[in-house]
Design a protein around this nucleic acid. Sequence first.
DNA 1: CTTCTGACA
DNA 2: TGTCAGAA
Length: 111
Amino acid sequence: MDEITTRRNYPILTMAIAIKLTGLTARQIRYYTDKELIKVARTPGGQRLFSLNQIDLLLEIKAQISAGFSLAETKKFLSKKMSHPSQNDDQTTRKILFDELLQSSPFGNKS
DNA sequence: CTTCTGACA
DNA sequence: TGTCAGAA
């Protein structure tokens, strides 16, 4: 596991930040974490702390729920996602973004 | 002041 | 899910 991955798993983000970054309500975030859709870290005082990766998972949960999936289905979906990290790593993502750049015109034909 | 839990609508 | 109370 490289340093970047380790840092992206550092749990230091508060509820307030998670709310702003995901657009979800505190109620929803607590509900999802309680349902173990994702397991978050806690401060000695019991406050939830999220890592960048967990914020990302929250966004995926939001997308799944918005798409009409149940919590149970979303939970399975995330489990599968976790078991196939190679499908979503940086190299793959960068190639996708690069290919998209190649497809757009380099001559600013769109205003 | 912010977040947590449990509970009721 | 929203919201309220009481505690941390």
